[in-house]
Amino acid sequence: MRVLVAGAAGQLGQEVTAQFAASVHEVVAVSRRELDVSRRDQVIGVVGSVRPDVLVNCAAYTAVDACETDAERAYEVNSWAVRHLAEAARRFDVHLCHVSTDYVFSGDKAEPYHEWDQPDPRSVYGASKLAGEQEAGSAATVVRTSWLCGRHGSNVVTTVLRLAAEGGPLRFVSDQRGSPSFAPDVAAVIERLCVDRSPGLFHVTNQGDVSWYEFVREVMTAAGHDPDRVEPIKTAELDPPLAAPRPANSVLENRALMLASIPIPSDYRESLARLISEYMG
């Protein structure tokens, strides 16, 4: 296949590009410099020029707290841009795969969220990403993931390793639970869904759930640091407080993958061990 990856400079975009290339697909990877997805003329022009079989949209405005004060930008990139991508996909007979987030849920549910649970975002970021899902259309593949970690870009693992090297205590919240998801694992499932041109909504996360506090302790242990340096704190105790509400529970059940008989990503601890091993050389 010929695959066009938008947002290819991000941590997931880089892994998606590598995954398709490793499977000997022809990949055209574009960052915001080459394609501003919020510009309809650019989207139509690039997709019409490349003529891909599949378009994977990893572009997003992910500054969750900044979205609260810049809602126009959040909707421009996370929602309006997807309308352009969906239009281009229809015009040039391209299968669209769009990446979304656990923030579309309120976090009030006691059990993991599956694909048929009703979204109820509490933040501008979550609301703009939900609007993007709706703009993608029923023919598209929509992949929701959560707590993304990887080799590229800034994420909790790289942040913890940097803070650990600096010394001193680390404080992370103990009242938010989720499923840490590793970009290479998510990218592998995205490739499978795109090859199959599978329409609809899929939750794609590594298995297992944990609080941020517990996860950071595991990162510290895996990297050979003392996990007792990590201190728990409640979200309400953060100073300064976070601008955007976070879901207390954002664990995603991969129900659609299981129903489709597609292998689900492994336990997050396995991927964390591999990632730390790479970091440690």
Rank of each mutant, 00 (worst) to 15 (best):
V30Q: 05
A89M: 08
V56D: 01
A29N: 06
G45K: 13
D41V: 14
V46R: 00
V54F: 10
V54M: 11
D65E: 11
S79W: 06
D53H: 13
T69S: 14
F92K: 00
D41Y: 14
D53T: 10
V94R: 03
H25I: 05
A66K: 05
V56W: 02
A74C: 13
V28E: 08
V37F: 12
E76V: 13
S38N: 01
R39L: 12
T69G: 14
L35Y: 03
V64P: 01
D93L: 02
A81E: 00
C58G: 11
R51C: 15
Y61N: 03
H84E: 13
E72V: 15
G48A: 10
A63K: 09
R91V: 02
W80D: 04
E68T: 09
F92A: 00
D53E: 14
P52V: 09
G48M: 12
Y75E: 02
F92Y: 01
R39M: 12
D36L: 03
D65K: 09
A60N: 07
C58Q: 10
V77S: 02
Y61W: 10
G45P: 10
G48F: 10
A71W: 09
A22I: 00
D70V: 15
S79K: 04
R32K: 06
S38Q: 03
F92N: 00
V43D: 02
A60P: 09
R73V: 14
D93R: 04
A60K: 07
S23Y: 06
V50C: 09
A86M: 05
V82W: 07
E76R: 15
T62D: 07
S79N: 06
S79M: 06
R90F: 08
A81Q: 00
C67L: 14
V77G: 02
V37T: 12
C67I: 13
I44M: 11
T62M: 08
A59I: 12
E26Q: 14
R73F: 15
R83M: 14
D53G: 09
A60Q: 07
V43K: 02
A71H: 08
Y61C: 04
R73W: 15
R40G: 11
A29K: 03
F92G: 00
D36G: 04
E68W: 12
E68P: 01
N57L: 03
A89C: 11
S38H: 02
A89G: 06
P52Y: 08
R39A: 12
V28C: 11
E76W: 15
V94A: 05
N78E: 11
R51P: 14
V64K: 05
Q42H: 11
W80H: 08
A29F: 08
R33L: 08
W80L: 07
G48I: 12
E26N: 12
F92C: 00
V94S: 02
L55D: 06
V28A: 10
V47D: 03
D53Q: 12
R32T: 01
Y61V: 07
T62V: 12
S49D: 15
H25W: 04
R90Y: 10
N78K: 10
R39S: 13
V43Q: 03
R90I: 09
H25M: 07
A86P: 02
A60Y: 09
E26R: 15
S23F: 02
D70P: 10
A74F: 11
